[in-house]
Amino acid sequence: MKLLRPYFKAVVNARKLLVYTFLLCFALLIYMPFLMIALKSIGRGWFGRLWLPPELTLDWYRWAVEVTNIPEITKNTLIIAALAVAMSTLIGIPTGWAFGRRKIPGKELLMSMILLPRMIPPIAYALGVAQIFYRLHLINTHFGVALAHVAICAPYAILVLSATFEGLDERVLEAAAVCGANPLRTFFHVILPLILPGILSSMIFTFTTSYNEFTLTLMTYGKDTITLPVRTYIAMGEGYWEVTSAMSIILVIPSLIVLFMIQRQVAPEKLVGGFKGV
């Protein structure tokens, strides 16, 4: 038995080693593409069988800023995202409240109906959206592109906010009333602080969704409303991989910052799922 103990230990250690190797491979698989992009964007003359670029340069970033007019495009992207966030939040608060606090006949069915835009491939209704917007002259306006984004952002906002309102404890509100707070005071001092995190997280989710949205933008953009993802796509078509990489890095950094910022406050798992039992 004693003889066997080191053997068992070795087996346990081997298991651990295996597990960590697996995790390491997984992390490498996820991060290496970004590392490649980052290196591509700062390297010069990286051809042939070289592991690393031989020369470093910031030229591609300069190109990206000067030739493709990144500041203007970033401004477009941010304006559109801000409009989309504002509209989705304005839609999400009342509807989320109704879903969270009121008895609605057929609530489950209604909710899955509202979530339908997230299940049907966006390209299917993007076609219709584009045709309607052409008729209404909404193509190539910030408002139009943002409105198209709302189609996919609003269901998110409603889902997150209805969960927030559902979590609001009735007893706290009663306690506020018993303590003599008038409705206005209850709202500002009790309800608002309680629902603010929910509103914030819904805003962050809708912001990242709109910021990264590609399909709906591609169908509704014009030359004055090019966003970062669309510009990256165009640059990819032009074949300048180094400049494309530089633009991708500019595009991807805010998303990553947001992810690392919110991971402690709100469960980032919500970014992915959100359907209860499908």
Binding site: N212, L251, L259
Partner: peptide, 28 residues
């Protein structure tokens, strides 16, 4: 850390993921 890593493909635009993967798995 690994949990967060799991979410990364979902928070970056698909285009960027495609670009990075094309570079990573390309002939060079």
């Amino acid at each position: 850390f690994f949990r967060l890593t799991m979410l990364i493909p979902r928070v970056v635009p698909g285009l960027i993921g495609a670009l990075g993967l094309l570079l990573l798995f390309g002939s060079r």
